[in-house]
Computed example of a mutant assay.
Amino acid sequence: MIEKSLILGLLLTPLSLLAVNDPGSSEINEKLDVVEAIIAETETQTAACQMHSAWHFPVELYGYLDIARKYADNAKKTKNLRKMQENLQSILAIVDECINGKEGYWSGNWNDVWVDPTPGVPDCALDSFVKMKKELETEIKKFL
């Protein structure tokens, strides 16, 4: 009986070594938590604006952040690290698009449909978005 438990212990030892968290990965997750806190703070600050207008906070920011987290979980591969950085850059692109709005354009499809312009955030949320953009740029530069 003792031999079986000793053999089982020796077999499971390498598995326990693999389960140890990578300190670099936890540091990345902490930085991503800061990015999420910035986005959540801005959403909270613009809640009154959302209630009094037809504008809604862009939930795509959380989607790109979740994708970046998934790539960060396996950041040992440089491909995954690059994909994480691309998703963080997409967050900045969406914030820019929200601030500046999006111009109308022809779709270029076979039926060539006009896509209406998307207005920027309303004035009641503009200051919060400009502040969020500055904070996000500062935090995302730490990943690059």
Rank of each mutant, 00 (worst) to 15 (best):
N21Q: 14
A40E: 15
A19M: 13
S26T: 07
E27M: 13
A40F: 05
D33G: 08
D22F: 04
L10E: 13
L15P: 01
N21G: 05
N21A: 09
G9V: 01
V35I: 14
A19N: 06
L8H: 08
S5K: 12
K31P: 05
S25F: 07
L8E: 15
S16N: 03
S25H: 08
A40G: 03
T13W: 08
L17E: 11
N21C: 07
L32W: 08
P14D: 05
N21Y: 07
I38T: 06
S25K: 14
T13N: 02
L32G: 07
I39T: 01
E36P: 02
A40L: 14
E30F: 10
I39V: 12
E30A: 12
I28F: 01
L8N: 09
N29L: 14
L10M: 13
L6M: 14
K4S: 06
E3D: 13
A37G: 03
V20T: 05
E27T: 06
L32A: 04
N21K: 14
L12Y: 08
V20S: 03
I7W: 13
P14M: 01
E30M: 14
G9S: 06
T13I: 11
A19Q: 10
I7C: 06
N21F: 07
D33V: 04
N29V: 06
I7V: 11
L15R: 01
T13H: 00
N29C: 02
I28M: 11
S16W: 11
V35P: 01
L8Y: 08
S26I: 11
G24N: 14
E27F: 04
E36T: 03
T13P: 00
I39S: 00
S26Q: 12
I38P: 05
L11D: 02
K31G: 10
L15E: 01
S25G: 06
L15V: 03
S16R: 09
E36K: 12
L8T: 06
L15M: 09
L6K: 13
L32I: 08
E36G: 06
L17W: 14
E30Q: 15
I39D: 02
I7L: 15
N29H: 15
E30S: 11
S5Q: 10
S26K: 11
L17T: 04
G9Y: 01
L8K: 11
L32H: 09
P23T: 02
S16G: 04
V35E: 04
A40H: 05
A40T: 10
G9A: 05
D22E: 10
D33P: 01
L32P: 09
L6Q: 13
N21S: 08
L12Q: 05
I28R: 09
S5E: 14
D22L: 07
S25P: 00
V35K: 02
G9D: 05
V20G: 02
I28W: 00
L8C: 04
I38E: 15
G24S: 08
V34C: 01
D33F: 10
A40C: 05
K31D: 10
S5D: 09
A19K: 03
L10A: 12
E30H: 12
L11N: 01
I38K: 10
E30T: 08
V34H: 10
D33S: 13
E3A: 09
V35S: 03
L17I: 12
L15G: 00
I28C: 02
D33L: 14
S5L: 15
L10H: 05
D33C: 03
N21E: 15
L18M: 15
V34F: 05
G24E: 15
P23W: 00
L17P: 00
K4P: 02
K4H: 06
L15D: 00
L15N: 02
